[in-house]
Computed example of a mutant assay.
Amino acid sequence: MKCKYTIETLIGELTVLENDGRITDLHFGKVSILGMVEKKTELIAEVEKQINEYYQGSREEFDIPLRIEGTPFQKKVWEALREIPKGETRTYEDIAMAVGSPKASRAVGMANNRNRIPVIIPCHRVIGKNGKLVGFAGGLDVKEKLLEMEKKSR
């Protein structure tokens, strides 16, 4: 069954989508999606709990079943994002090198942009080569807040 529910977290409202016992998407704010049952399932409640624990500092990693859909390259990038330690950042170039494609910084940026499960797959930890915060679905203010909260909760 496809369910969605907007949860309250320390980082604001997040709409979580679940399909057959796996999280498929996470959106900033309240989002309307046709054809989905509005229901706070046990898994969605667990996402809410784990995100809040994570940003309070009582959890170091997420343990949530995900359904990650993308190209093989995108999946490699998303896996590399999950390897960035909490409270740290990497550049697009760093990630390109980590996935074995040193000249693919732009493709890494596009993979980041296509990440459907931000926060859990931490695309907010990727910054520009000059050290500036760039592009983020939740907005740069949210990206900055996430990074600050991670540093404090380490």
Rank of each mutant, 00 (worst) to 15 (best):
E93C: 10
G128P: 03
E48W: 04
V77S: 00
V142D: 06
V108T: 04
L146K: 05
E18L: 06
K75F: 07
T41P: 01
F136V: 10
I33Y: 10
E148G: 08
R67P: 01
A96M: 01
N113P: 05
R154F: 09
I11H: 11
Q50M: 06
K75V: 13
Q50R: 06
L81Q: 00
G57C: 03
K145C: 08
G35Y: 05
E93Q: 14
C3L: 10
K129R: 15
I64M: 00
I11M: 05
P122L: 11
I84F: 08
P118L: 08
A104Q: 02
D141C: 14
I127K: 14
Y55R: 03
R116F: 11
M1E: 09
S58K: 15
L147W: 01
S153A: 13
M149G: 01
T41A: 06
P122N: 06
E88Y: 06
L81E: 01
E8K: 12
V134C: 14
I7V: 13
S153V: 04
V31N: 02
L147S: 06
K129N: 14
E53W: 13
K4R: 10
I44P: 01
R154D: 07
G57I: 06
E42M: 09
L10I: 11
N130F: 02
E83I: 07
H124C: 08
G135R: 15
E69C: 12
I44M: 00
V134F: 14
R154L: 12
R154E: 09
V134S: 15
A45H: 07
E60I: 14
C123R: 13
K75P: 00
K4D: 10
A96R: 01
I68Y: 06
I117T: 04
A98M: 09
A96Q: 00
E42W: 08
M97K: 14
K75I: 13
K4H: 09
K75M: 13
P85H: 04
I51C: 01
M110S: 15
I120H: 00
K4T: 10
D141A: 15
M36P: 01
A104N: 03
I95D: 00
Q50F: 07
Y92S: 06
E93R: 13
K145Y: 06
K103E: 15
P118A: 07
V47W: 00
A80C: 00
L10W: 09
A107N: 15
E46I: 03
L34W: 11
G70F: 01
T24D: 07
V134N: 15
I120D: 03
V16W: 00
K2F: 09
K103L: 15
N19S: 11
I127C: 03
I51R: 01
L17A: 10
I127V: 14
V16Q: 02
A45M: 09
E150F: 02
V31G: 01
R114D: 13
A107V: 02
S32K: 14
N130I: 11
T71M: 09
R106T: 15
